[in-house]
Design a protein around this nucleic acid. Structure first.
Lengths: 221, 221
DNA sequence: CGCTTCTTTGAATTTCGTCAAAAGGCGTGG
DNA sequence: CCACGCCTTTTGACGAAATTCAAAGAAGCG
């Protein structure tokens, strides 16, 4: 199962065994803070089960959700290689299992298997491109377009279905750069139009095509 | 001089010689497009002299400036390691000298000097953190705060002085997520207040502290 | 000097955030 | 099992912020 994590992809079995040997495994309840913005970064993390949200707070109260982490994805890893300051909070969005490795172990693994550094480059390169898209969207698009795009991003990429994460309106708003009020308004409007339904903290997408229309600024057909 | 580029930092002289041998050097006029969004990525670039802006356009006409590249910084490099699709345009902001290396040469260099992959990780890790900050700002702050922050980012970090890049109002707007009209209004207001002066495409900061106030949402003292 | 590009400024409009308040859900503990 | 309190969602009304449109100056460049 470790072989499915993006950090350890395409590594020989021997490397997986070694990574497994030095991994710390933690079962955490929902809404548990794994690390805090400003903490010193001393471990590399990955989600095995459940989900984690990465939340950044500004010196004013403003918060934004930078990213949701799904099983198999790593997080909190980049600062190990830069300035060792964690730039955001990590909070479980539901009961989750989280793996982590000490900095020393990670460095030893990278030395032993240079392909790992290529994996890291590929992963953070992909995230960089995603964030660039979000910067452009936040800079140029309306709130409804961004919210529709957020739903598309959070839904599994194949066909219709449930969002991959349990979300409150507040979370959705902080992820798409708006307020929970406008997020609520738009969701109820779209639910009325049959695009989606919202049950508790789960959202089901019925009409992906409609969301694409909305994300491009067109109105519902 | 190559040793000053972030890509080749801390490498032995022998590596610099080799990098120099296979580098392509180009003198380009201002507003020259180096590559285009959607192109296949086949080279790694760095600015030796001048400056380059990285501009992303959406399927609607909306444009955003993702980043300005100063001498010594690399650009267009990440997609070499991911999907080989360039996610944005690169355009010289003034007459510039641009270095580039073929993918094969870069890979050969990385194989020979594994420290280079660590350099790459450090560089794109740093950019990732910067972009996270911008996402939060775009999501939570007002246009005037973002514009003030943009000016702070673009000015040299020590004391007052001239911005590092020649900028039109449109560029400033596309970099801070607003329109050229509001950017113009705010700049003239701040110029009247003595915070800065604008001469042609160059902006001089007189009162960095005031910009910090503005970026935090407070009004001018 | 004439042209293009860029900047400024005003006025109207839209979008969106803010505030307030009511209604709904959910879990805990009695 | 019910009642209570807390958290979340919904909805309306209002106002502030920022975009849009229009048009006139200003500045650079051939």
């Amino acid at each position: 199962m470790l072989g499915a994590t993006e950090l350890l992809r395409d590594l020989p079995d021997e490397a997986l065994v070694r990574a497994h040997a030095c991994a710390r495994v933690e079962r955490l309840p929902g809404h548990h803070r794994i690390f805090e913005q400003g903490d010193r970064c001393e471990r590399a993390y990955a989600v095995a089960k459940g989900s984690v949200s990465i939340v950044q707070a500004g010196s004013d109260g403003g918060q934004a959700i930078i990213r949701f982490i799904a099983p198999g994805e790593m997080f909190g890893t980049v600062p190990l290689f830069t300035d060792h300051m964690l730039p955001a909070d990590a909070i479980t969005a539901e009961p989750s299992v989280v793996l982590s490795w000490s900095e020393a172990d990670i460095n030893a693994l990278i030395d032993a298997y240079p392909r790992m550094s290529m994996n890291i480059i590929r992963v953070i390169g992909t995230r960089l491109v995603e964030l660039q898209d979000r910067v452009r969207e936040l800079a140029t698009q309306r709130a409804d377009q961004r919210l529709a795009r957020a739903l598309l991003r959070l839904s599994r990429h194949d066909g219709n279905g449930e969002l991959a994460f349990p979300l409150r309106r507040k979370d959705l708003a902080e992820f798409s750069g708006t307020t929970l009020y406008t997020a609520s308004r738009m969701l109820t409007a779209w639910a009325r139009a049959g695009v989606l339904t919202s049950i508790g903290r789960r959202i089901l997408i019925h009409d992906r095509a409609a969301l694409h229309f909305l994300a491009e600024g067109r109105s519902l057909p």
